[in-house]
């Protein structure tokens, strides 16, 4: 269970988060939508312990992580898997080694067992056989899928996705969404995802939350968001340009 209360953060006097409240129940898929530059990545980085808030709390399974030291934070991160916006694969490693990396560095598994698990993950994301390639040698969509394989290889309890489909063509968007859904059914992790893909994410999400001007202005099941009376929400999901008085 992730519970965020009153989270605020400014950069150089410029407020980005102005009091975010959000609950993410165990095993659900929560998708955060909102304008580009609206602070979605910044919000996610608070959940990951990469940024410290000016005020507010982030409870992960009952622990407020905003005051944790790096050792204790690493303890919490043992349960995390993260897919970064650009994939954040290690350039110097092959795709196979990228996926194997968390297992090699953090577990006592032998090379055969690691190879087996990595092959299995790559197959799950439809990339059996590209293990020997370097990230620079494959397409953007493939890189995102390798990143998903890497995030899931340690069987994390909570998986964070920062725009896993941005910049991909519509077919690939659906492929990746279906992949996330399949893996979610298989492993039952809690997912927190930032996405712009409207309307596709309404098929995927259990809960949709809209971040606008530093606050969550609407939160609920997809149907409730689609039917929301809030004009800001309607404007966003219809893709209308903003009207500034």
């Amino acid at each position: 269970m992730i519970k965020v209360r009153g989270l605020t953060k400014s950069f150089g006097g410029q407020p980005v988060l102005r009091g975010v409240d959000l609950d993410v129940p165990d095993g659900s898929i929560t998708v955060i939508i909102g304008r580009s530059g609206g602070g979605k990545s910044v919000f996610l980085k608070h959940l990951l312990g990469l940024l410290r808030p000016d005020s507010g709390e982030v409870m992960i399974n009952g622990t407020d992580i905003t005051h944790l030291g790096s050792r204790a934070m690493d303890e919490v991160r043992q349960h995390y898997g993260v897919v970064f916006q650009g994939g954040a694969l290690f350039d110097s490693l092959t795709c196979f080694d990228n996926v194997a990396f968390p297992l090699r560095e953090k577990t006592e598994l032998g090379p055969d067992e690691i190879a087996k698990r990595v092959e299995q993950r790559l197959e799950q994301v439809g990339l059996a056989g590209v293990g020997a390639k370097y990230p620079a040698e494959i397409s953007g969509g493939m890189r995102k899928r390798v990143a998903i394989a890497r995030a899931l290889v340690t069987e994390p309890e909570i998986v964070f996705f920062d725009e896993p489909t941005t910049g991909l063509d519509p077919v690939l968007v659906n492929t990746i969404h279906r992949l996330i859904l399949t893996l979610h059914r298989a492993y039952g992790f809690t997912a927190v995802m930032v996405s712009h893909e409207i309307p596709e994410i309404f098929e995927l999400a259990d809960t949709v939350a809209m971040l606008h001007e530093g606050r969550i202005v609407a939160v609920g099941p997809p149907a409730a968001i689609q039917g929301s009376p809030n004009p800001v929400v309607q404007q966003f999901i219809r893709g209308e340009p903003e009207l500034k008085a």
């Binding site: 990951l48 990469l50 690493d74 991160r77 043992q78 970064f84 953090k106």
Partner: peptide, 11 residues
Amino acid sequence: TEQIDALTVMA
């Protein structure tokens, strides 16, 4: 490219 963040969140 967030590779440093990726290492950090892998603990």
